[in-house]
Computed example of a mutant assay.
Amino acid sequence: MKSKITGQRFLAVTLLNVLITVVEIIGGLLSGSLALLSDAFHNMGDSFSIILGYVAQQLGGKSENRKQTYGYRRAEILSALTNSLLLLVIAIFLIGEAIQRLGHPEHINGRLMLVVAVVGLLANFASAALLHSGSHDSLNVKATYLHVLSDALSSVAVIIGGIILSFVNIPWLDPLLTIGVAIYIGLEALPIISQTIKILMQSSPDLDYDNITADLKGVAGVNDVHHVHAWMIDENHIIFSAHLNCDDLRLSEVEGIYSQVEQILREKYHICHITIQAEYGRGRDENLFNTPVDKQHMINDKDNDK
């Protein structure tokens, strides 16, 4: 079951991020640490992302209606995409700033940098704990959770840098840490961007269509399957439609076939919304994905000629 993160938890995480942001901006300015300032701006972006994630979750929970017959679940996918793109933009910005700092290194107050980074790490761990329960079931919450985790990693990197700079003056260490954290942030964002775009483009979910075909043809009265469409509303809800070539049956008998087909698709393949159209002879020249057999042969012949 998909777990929901409560508004109180989102509020607590937002307040923690605002607190971290203020502390790190002050600490970064006083210590001269770009890594600390970059982490502060990262946290500022996180505050926006957490609020957006909560609004999207509330909107996604609204019931279906005449204007949105599939409901509002895509709001969470849009939020996840927005948050992940924001992470990527932040990563690119941080890398640019760090490269400039490499050319003009500054003295860093390592001890102050260390103290502020420890405060940030503790607050980020608290935020991550609040969001952890929903991060496995929702791309929206996962994107927000990754924001917080990337902040925690940033704090770890800054702590390591602070410890070193407390004893040794290495001007290039601070921007180098910033680049490392930024690369990590970008790499964490890319898979979510890819998955959300696939969902928004209505790409097919990962289903075993050969086994589905065999299972449906195994239902008494079903002779063939064609015109299959499958897509996702969000990462947890698969929509499936298909045409079935059946024996010449009465409507009451076809309804029995529908019940068996729906049971197979729901229980074995975890499909939540199923639309089936029964036919007798119509569509026999179509394959599983609605390409007429003779046209498919023409496509294959052209491919073989290349």
Rank of each mutant, 00 (worst) to 15 (best):
G61R: 05
G61L: 12
G61K: 03
G61C: 11
G61T: 09
G61P: 06
G61E: 13
G61D: 15
K62R: 06
K62N: 03
K62P: 05
K62I: 02
K62W: 00
S63M: 10
S63R: 06
S63C: 13
E64F: 11
E64Q: 14
N65S: 14
N65A: 14
N65C: 15
N65G: 15
R66G: 14
R66D: 15
R66N: 14
R66C: 11
R66Q: 14
K67I: 10
K67C: 10
Q68N: 08
Q68K: 06
Q68V: 04
Q68F: 14
T69R: 15
T69W: 14
T69Y: 12
T69L: 14
Y70L: 03
Y70M: 03
Y70H: 03
G71F: 01
G71W: 00
G71E: 00
G71K: 00
Y72R: 04
Y72S: 04
Y72N: 06
Y72L: 09
R73L: 09
R73T: 10
R73M: 08
R73Y: 11
R74Y: 13
R74K: 15
R74D: 13
A75Q: 06
A75P: 07
E76Y: 04
E76L: 08
E76W: 05
E76H: 09
E76I: 09
I77Y: 00
I77K: 00
I77F: 00
I77W: 00
L78Q: 04
L78T: 04
L78K: 07
L78I: 13
S79A: 15
A80G: 12
A80I: 07
A80Q: 09
A80M: 10
L81I: 08
L81Q: 09
L81S: 04
L81Y: 05
L81R: 04
T82W: 00
T82F: 01
T82Q: 00
T82K: 00
N83M: 15
N83R: 09
N83V: 12
N83Y: 12
N83D: 12
S84D: 04
S84I: 02
S84Y: 04
S84Q: 04
S84M: 05
S84N: 03
L85R: 04
L85A: 03
L85E: 03
L86A: 07
L86S: 07
L86N: 01
L87C: 02
L87E: 01
L88V: 15
L88P: 10
L88N: 10
L88K: 07
L88G: 14
L88F: 15
V89F: 03
V89Y: 02
V89D: 02
V89H: 02
I90R: 01
I90D: 03
I90F: 09
I90T: 08
I90S: 06
A91N: 07
A91G: 13
A91R: 02
A91C: 08
I92N: 08
I92H: 07
I92S: 08
I92T: 09
F93T: 09
F93I: 09
L94E: 15
L94K: 11
L94R: 12
I95A: 05
I95E: 03
I95H: 01
I95V: 11
G96L: 03
G96W: 03
G96Y: 05
G96F: 04
G96K: 01
E97K: 13
E97V: 10
E97L: 13
A98Q: 02
A98Y: 02
A98H: 02
A98D: 05
I99G: 10
I99N: 13
